[in-house]
Simulated assay, not measured.
Amino acid sequence: MQASVLSRIHHRNLVGLVGFCKDNKVLGVVYEYVAQGSLRDNLSEKAGGGGLNWRQRLRIAIETASGLEYLHKGCRPPVIHRDVKTSNILLDHNLEAKIADFGLSKTFQTDANTHVSTDVVVGTPGYVDPEYHNTYQLNEKSDVYSFGVVLLELVTGLPPVLRYPESGHIVQWVRQRLTKADISEVVDSRLEGQYDINSIVKVIDIAMSCINTDGSKRPTMSEVVMQLKESLQVEASQERGNSNGNFVEGVYKSPSVSVEMGRLDMANTVSGPMAR
């Protein structure tokens, strides 16, 4: 993306541009320092991550979604990030999320355009929208797909491409375990059961809608923000305490969980292709 476009983008959940310079046709861009590193580092066991609780993860999801919503709806012309991933979501000293790295971003020339045609598919393995990969036609729903993968990372604590103890894609891994309707097989064990199960199920439901193979059936980022805020409200109500006796060891045991699990649309989700 042109530096002139970057300089006009201002949102609390986007990493701020400090300055840029051009020397011998090489553009250097300087962003604000973000103290707590990337979300991937904060989720990775190898990096000593995993200390984020569920409410913190939900807030990070909402803040990231808000940043993407601004790029898609608040910018003129609209901006597609094209490389949404947990290593491009940085956390400040208050653990507030900020989207970084706009090097692959594309803008629509006019608001009336439905997509941007590209000569080559770029992005990060595990996050690339299958529809974009097949058609070379990029739109905001490609970012929505990538964000769906990010949501699954927040739930599971796993990276998008799995290599140990088994290989595959996080979408496949989640789908296989959801068929057993056992949510404990999907949720990051480092959360130690400290979450409302209905909140978790809702986020998985949102993620599955984001990674639908048909981009037209994916939600907009505005809809995702609204749904994630509803999930946070569910989690907040649990933290205020439940008086019906179903709160055991930090987990709200809802009798509707099996019904909710059945709503998850897994038939239209597949793992993302590798970028070229």
Rank of each mutant, 00 (worst) to 15 (best):
K25G: 01
I211D: 00
D214M: 13
R190S: 13
D111Y: 03
I89S: 09
G51C: 12
V128H: 01
S199W: 03
P77T: 02
E140K: 08
N244C: 13
T220S: 13
P219Q: 02
L151R: 03
S216R: 12
T213E: 14
V29S: 05
I62P: 12
D182T: 11
S237F: 05
K202G: 08
A207I: 06
V79S: 06
L58Y: 02
P125R: 03
R55P: 00
L52G: 12
N113Q: 15
K85S: 10
I9M: 10
W54K: 04
L39W: 07
V174E: 05
V171I: 15
G215T: 05
V186W: 07
P77Q: 09
M208W: 09
N212T: 10
A267S: 14
S216Y: 01
N134W: 02
T118N: 05
G50F: 10
T86C: 15
M221F: 02
Q238D: 04
H72T: 10
N244K: 12
A97C: 08
Y127A: 01
A65W: 07
H11V: 11
L39M: 14
R57C: 13
R263H: 09
G215A: 14
N268K: 12
R276N: 14
R8P: 00
K22H: 02
C75M: 10
V15Q: 01
R8L: 12
P255T: 12
V18T: 04
S256I: 11
D143N: 06
A35T: 15
L158Q: 11
F20N: 11
N24P: 00
P165Q: 03
S167T: 14
A112Y: 11
A100L: 04
E69H: 06
I99K: 00
R240Q: 11
V203N: 08
E223V: 04
G241L: 11
S38P: 14
V203Q: 07
Q176H: 13
Q227M: 12
K98R: 15
E239K: 14
S66P: 10
A181N: 10
M221N: 04
V150T: 06
S184H: 03
E239F: 07
S146Y: 02
E140T: 10
S167G: 08
D83C: 07
D101Y: 01
Y145N: 07
Y33D: 05
P159Y: 08
C21L: 03
N242M: 10
L162D: 02
A275P: 07
I197M: 14
Y132N: 07
A35K: 15
T156S: 15
A3D: 00
L27A: 03
Y127C: 01
V251A: 13
S231A: 15
Y145Q: 07
S271I: 00
G48T: 12
L228E: 01
R163F: 11
A97T: 04
V128L: 03
K229D: 05
G168Q: 00
H81K: 09
N198F: 04
L158K: 14
R276W: 04
Y127I: 01
N242I: 07
E140M: 10
R163N: 11
R240Y: 00
D119P: 01
H169Y: 01
L162A: 03
T220E: 02
G123S: 06
F247W: 13
S38F: 05
N134F: 04
M266K: 06
S87Q: 09
R175P: 00
G262H: 08
S167N: 07
I99E: 00
A275L: 09
A61K: 04
K217A: 13
N13K: 07
V29H: 06
A65G: 15
C75A: 08
L95W: 09
V150E: 04
G272S: 15
P130T: 10
